[in-house]
């Protein structure tokens, strides 16, 4: 009897560890959130929690697209430049007129998708290293933004645009936060149910085998990069909606935040692994790390040390939970 009970307990323990193993980054997020809530009750206030979700929107939205190309075995370093370009482009095309909003948003999304499409086409047909190609594209897009804007973030945001995205439903949930969560859920759902996403994993795991088995590798590559560009454009619009832009380099450096989130979330440079869910959890891990040191009130230099340590500890804990079976 006691042997059977012991076996059952072992079985439950194994199941818990298995669950923790396959959801490692969520376990890390839950632990970090619990620590944050212990240190500051701000993390228990719904208004603040949704503020954090809204803060995460630009990086989080861009990270969804980059996750797709990294599952494919690629990378997209042009996403920061795309964010800057599309934020400036949207503001310029709006020109302070409400009637211009649909055109501005459509052109910005098209520009992002187009840049991503060019990345994808060059990678699919020329087999250039995605790292080098998208780095080069980042430089090109930055140059285009500078020429287009003349070095100042020209453009006037239409009245109502930022007010709409920052409006809090029920006094708590900003529309922008809801949009981000909606896109994240949509991404996870598509990843689980569509043939396109299944093919991304197949190509990422073994590109040669995928090609030999007749998968349309080139078409999928182009489409994945175009999606990454499109999500980059959405991130640019989200950045403009959240706080406006005060320079033509609004998205500078965000590509590294995006990459850090994608990799911490379990999607590797080798491809074929990971997913959007992990990326979203990692976006919040990184953001809470920043907000926590800020909110606890550490001196700036101590903030850097502790923030870096949180990231290192989080990634170590992630590996630990992953390995335990």
């Amino acid at each position: 009897m006691s042997d059977r009970m012991g076996a059952e307990i072992d079985g439950v323990q194994t199941k818990i560890w298995r669950w923790a193993s396959s959801n490692a980054i969520w376990v890390v997020l839950a632990l970090l959130f619990a620590i944050a809530a212990l240190l500051s009750d701000a993390f228990l206030r719904p208004v603040y929690i949704f503020n954090v979700v809204r803060q995460a929107a630009p990086v989080g939205i861009a990270a969804i697209g980059v996750t797709l190309v990294m599952i494919l075995g690629g990378v997209d370093l042009s996403v920061g430049a795309v964010i800057s370009l599309t934020a400036v482009l949207t503001a310029v095309l709006m020109d302070g007129q409400v009637a211009n909003i649909p055109l501005a948003v459509t052109v910005a999304l098209a520009a992002g998708a187009c840049i991503g499409g060019i990345n994808g086409t060059l990678i699919a047909y020329n087999r250039i290293s995605p790292f080098i190609l998208t780095l080069g594209m980042a430089v090109v897009v930055t140059g285009m933004t500078q020429i287009y804007s003349g070095g100042t973030a020209r453009g006037i945001v239409s009245p109502g645009f930022r007010e709409f995205f920052n409006y809090r439903i029920g006094g708590i949930v900003p529309v922008l936060a809801l949009t981000f969560l909606g896109l994240a859920l949509l991404g996870v759902r598509l990843q689980q149910t569509t043939k396109f996403c299944r093919n991304l994993y197949l190509i990422g795991s073994n590109p040669q085998a995928a090609e030999l088995s007749g998968l349309p590798v080139k078409r999928i590559t182009i489409f994945a990069y175009a999606l990454s560009g499109l999500m980059g454009a959405m991130a640019g619009i989200a950045l403009l909606a959240r706080s406006g832009v005060s320079s033509t380099f609004a998205g500078r450096g965000l590509e590294f935040d995006v990459l850090a989130a994608v990799i911490l979330g379990g999607t590797t440079f080798q491809g074929g692994r990971g997913g959007i869910g992990g990326t979203i959890a990692a976006v919040f891990v990184l953001l809470i790390a920043f907000n926590l040191v800020n909110i606890v009130g550490l001196d700036y230099n101590a903030q850097l040390i502790v923030k870096g340590a949180i990231i290192i500890i989080a990634s170590s804990a992630y590996i630990y939970f992953k390995k335990v079976r």
Binding site: A42, R45, Q55, S243, G244, S246, A250, N294, I295
Partner: peptide
């Protein structure tokens, strides 16, 4: 950076 200044202030307002 306007966005970063806003994010930091949002945290300070909580503290």
């Amino acid at each position: 950076n306007r966005a970063k200044a806003k994010q930091i202030t949002e945290n300070l307002l909580q503290k």
